[in-house]
């Protein structure tokens, strides 16, 4: 399948993966930052920029994926409705 066409048609699923990967990277970066210092005052900002921001990005990825599923179901209902009103429609 042509990659560009796939990205164009499934932009929300592609974006979901991008956000999930970014969230995982943020969590990893936060863990690395925290583990490199013994001072809690230096660790705390990493909890926010790595931990909380990572969870935020993972949530964004999740909502995009769920939205794509709902959008697909909506289109399927569109097709069923068209078939019910016009059985000869594709």
């Amino acid at each position: 399948m042509d990659l560009l066409n796939y990205v164009r048609n499934q932009w929300d699923r592609v974006a979901a993966w991008v956000f999930v990967v970014a969230g995982a990277l943020a969590l990893l970066t936060g863990w690395l930052g925290i583990s490199r210092t013994a001072y809690p005052a230096e660790q705390n900002p990493y909890i926010i920029s790595g931990g909380l921001a990572g969870i935020f990005l993972l949530g964004l990825g999740g909502v995009l994926w769920l939205s794509a599923d709902l959008r697909d179901e909506w289109r399927k209902l569109d097709r069923i409705e068209r078939r019910l009103s016009d059985p000869d429609s594709p």
Partner: peptide, 24 residues
Amino acid sequence: WWGASATADQSSQVAWINLGVCGL
């Protein structure tokens, strides 16, 4: 993140972390 990075006082940082949790 900005508030927690700007201070070395842990009790203040906890307050900023709470703000972050609220954002989440």
